[in-house]
Amino acid sequence: MNDYLSNLITEQVNQETENIDECTTEQILNLINREDSKVPDAVRKEIPNITKAVDIIYESLSSGGRMIYLGAGTSGRLGVLDASECPPTYGTDPELIQGYIAGGDGALRTAVEGSEDSEEEGRKQVKECSVTKKDVIIGITASGSAPYVCGALKQAREYGATTIGVVNNDNTKLNKLCDICIEVVVGPEVVIGSTRMKAGTAQKLVLNMLTTAAMIKLGKVYGNMMVDLKASNNKLNERSIRIIRKVTGVNEESALKYLEEADKNTKLAIMMILSGESCENSKRILEKNQGYLKRALKASDINLN
């Protein structure tokens, strides 16, 4: 028996759900909902550590570094999901925020049993990513002990990269391998050990916070609007037009015209409209202000009220 695993809180019996197999459908759902409601409070307790992590990620991305998630099973899938959603939402280069899962991309759809048990595979993935001291490597594992993740963080530390852990237990093996360890302890699962439930929900909330806060600090948001989104499909194109109209007050026809002139760059289109400058001059003003639209507009003496 592995004492480490058997002592994890995520492996303990949840006394609130011991008789869930005798419940009606509605009772089952109420029990699950009641347990899920505990997750946000657990995340809130870790905001000081999440804050430190975001500030480190921001500094890294601002200085030419990358943010790389590594995990196994549910944890790995959540990391890949969060990374894959950043380019369309915030217009980031796909290389900037990456996600990898033990067992490779095939494990996203079909479980690859035993893939998380190799430290060497984790080390190999970090080597293949050509990790440097500029990068931030984030290991995600509910147990805090997945060998794939531990191996990845060990290798990352050897390269001088900053390491961050996202776990769901206290005092885990991963803790010793991290510069910052975010420990969101959500308690025993509704079904013993089913960490795709509360633990997975907690991880999703934390990853949302890490990337969203970092993107806001990088100037990817104006007010609470995603002005750096890539209008790569009909839904996003319509959203871009709505954002342009909301910020500038122009009609739909003008919004579409400027969006086309700006090569689908929402932020650039807004800058052109509000500044009255050409596409090239607007681009230059934005670059001078590190891509922060509000800062660029203020630098151009544009009234934002």
Score class of each variant (00 low, 15 high):
residue 97 I to W: 09
residue 243 I to S: 05
residue 131 V to Y: 04
residue 81 L to H: 05
residue 150 C to K: 09
residue 64 G to H: 03
residue 210 L to I: 15
residue 110 T to S: 02
residue 23 C to Y: 15
residue 36 D to M: 05
residue 138 I to T: 02
residue 267 K to Y: 06
residue 6 S to Q: 14
residue 290 Q to P: 00
residue 74 T to C: 07
residue 18 E to D: 04
residue 73 G to Q: 01
residue 109 R to N: 12
residue 85 E to F: 05
residue 269 A to H: 07
residue 148 Y to T: 01
residue 269 A to R: 08
residue 24 T to L: 08
residue 61 L to V: 05
residue 196 R to P: 04
residue 18 E to K: 15
residue 144 G to K: 09
residue 36 D to W: 03
residue 252 E to R: 13
residue 175 N to K: 12
residue 254 S to G: 00
residue 252 E to S: 13
residue 231 A to T: 12
residue 240 S to F: 06
residue 160 G to K: 05
residue 287 E to I: 13
residue 77 R to P: 08
residue 25 T to Q: 01
residue 255 A to K: 08
residue 233 N to E: 12
residue 111 A to W: 01
residue 72 A to E: 01
residue 284 R to C: 01
residue 118 S to N: 07
residue 266 T to R: 04
residue 164 I to C: 11
residue 16 E to L: 09
residue 294 K to E: 14
residue 5 L to W: 05
residue 156 A to G: 03
residue 230 K to N: 02
residue 63 S to P: 00
residue 61 L to N: 09
residue 116 E to I: 08
residue 84 S to R: 04
residue 276 G to E: 11
residue 200 G to K: 11
residue 30 N to D: 14
residue 119 E to H: 06
residue 212 T to Q: 02
residue 228 D to F: 07
residue 210 L to H: 08
residue 297 L to W: 07
residue 197 M to W: 07
residue 30 N to C: 07
residue 296 A to W: 04
residue 16 E to A: 13
residue 229 L to M: 15
residue 23 C to Q: 13
residue 102 A to I: 09
residue 237 N to E: 12
residue 264 K to G: 00
residue 79 G to I: 10
residue 227 V to M: 06
residue 199 A to M: 01
residue 76 G to S: 10
residue 154 K to A: 03
residue 8 L to P: 11
residue 141 T to W: 00
residue 127 K to E: 11
residue 48 P to W: 04
residue 201 T to Q: 02
residue 152 A to L: 10
residue 170 D to R: 11
residue 169 N to S: 09
residue 26 E to N: 13
residue 65 G to K: 05
residue 243 I to K: 06
residue 79 G to R: 02
residue 90 Y to L: 06
residue 117 D to E: 08
residue 47 I to S: 02
